[in-house]
Nucleic acid binder design. Structure first.
Lengths: 238, 238
DNA sequence: TATCACAACTTGTATATACAAGTTAATATA
DNA sequence: TATATTAACTTGTATATACAAGTTGTGATA
């Protein structure tokens, strides 16, 4: 909360409502307080409230109905392909277990999953982390993330077990994902995938390569997610 | 243009700017006229202009930079997984050829690709169409679309060859896609896919099942897209 | 010619106000 | 008790105005 006061009021309201939804204070189907009510309780005017709500609409948290209210959609689901969420918020914490296969370590870049790197990114090296996501005791996602080594104190000593990388970036470094690019393709399982997902050679695997753009100018990070979609496809709303 | 006059001014402006971008009047990197300039030329006020521009930002057409201007990003790319675009706008018309394998015909529903159907949807039956999308002479997408038979005069006689279904819905029926749900998974090629994509058994295929929600209340349509991603993965920004 | 300061532009954020259009609740009447 | 009408709520759309903060261009000066 150290720098919350410096945020514009519409962002404060947006954050609070978003957190209320993701924390379950509002459930799917609930109706948020009306715009007028939010004006009163937050001491702002209606255009400010509407700007916060519009962003919640844009990100899939709520849906508005003229004359009725703002209806909670619940948390947008689907691994980041459809929203800015990371895997954790896509699947939901209660069903997802994150296992750190390789803790973050500082290294030089391999390629950034096919995305071109800028020269200063190459210079600073990156933290590389490998994780396995398990849903109901079943390995479903294997992902590799590379984060450039730019002003990330104590990054490699943080606890990533069962925590969202997006949340860690956001709360510890004030770095928020604001967009990015991604590529999707179907491949067959290589040996690492066969091992992690316990599947046979030839098993189809979904691969998602992503370049995340952030609020910190010139700071991108990269991830590659392999998904065994036999039991859990990727699902999302848009 | 028959009902353009009944649209609110911010939507008219949004539509015009969107079309200017998709038609290539503005190219990636160009800067749109300033907000003040758009106020003058469209005889509206700045909040109205900003609402139109905000929607363009939201959909990935432009990016705003404080003090500088609204920078054109070009058309958002990536098959619908990341935006409301259909396949045609995702890949770009010049590289994409759409071949109608089975013209739209009225039929009863098979299941809607795993999405539950409402009883009135079952009652009215649907138009089913199968298409093959070819990029640089190479079949890449095979898709099946089912559209409920609700007030769609002359639907089955329209020309879908090399045209966007989204555009046809939009211009002929004033039905716009406003969101939806989708599922993604990796499978191996079945016999139809082996034939259409000219691939061997066991070849990995990306499957995308979608339920489109529209501006017409209670009107959804459904599609299932199979992608051979060997040469063309799905790409998008978000 | 280069540099600095300032003006003039841009977008970002916000208040205030008003009316349109949709939904729901309350009240009157049959 | 049921129905219809109206009031009171909701979101949708818009104008007007003001100041903050970022970027760029212009003019003055060294």
């Amino acid at each position: 909360m150290t720098n919350k006061k410096s945020l514009p009021p519409y962002k404060i309201l947006y954050e609070q409502l978003r957190r209320h939804i993701t924390d379950g204070l509002y459930e799917k189907g609930d109706i948020l307080p009306s715009e007028n009510e939010l004006c009163t309780t937050h001491n702002v005017t209606r255009p400010t409230v509407r700007k916060a709500l519009d962003r919640l609409v844009h990100e899939g948290y709520i849906r508005k109905k003229q004359g009725k209210g703002s209806i909670v959609q619940g948390q947008p689901q689907g691994v980041g392909i459809l929203s800015l969420s990371g895997t954790t918020s896509a699947i939901g914490k209660e069903n997802l277990e994150t296992k750190i296969i390789i803790k973050p370590y500082l290294t030089t870049w391999e390629d950034a999953f096919g995305f071109p790197l800028l020269s200063y990114e190459k210079e600073v090296g990156c933290y590389r982390i490998e994780r396995l996501r398990i849903i109901n005791k079943q390995p479903v996602f294997y992902d590799i993330t590379m984060v450039p080594n730019i002003n990330l104190p104590r990054f490699s000593t943080r606890n990533f077990e069962n925590r969202s990388l997006f949340e860690i970036m956001r709360t510890n470094y004030q770095i928020e994902v604001i967009g990015g690019e991604q590529k999707l393709m179907a491949i067959t399982a290589n040996e690492a995938m066969q091992q992690y997902f316990n599947v046979k050679p030839g098993h189809p695997i979904l691969r998602l390569d992503r370049k995340m753009e952030t609020t910190k100018e010139g700071f991108f990070f990269y991830s590659q997610v392999f998904c065994n979609t036999t039991d859990y496809g990727l699902y999302g709303t848009f």
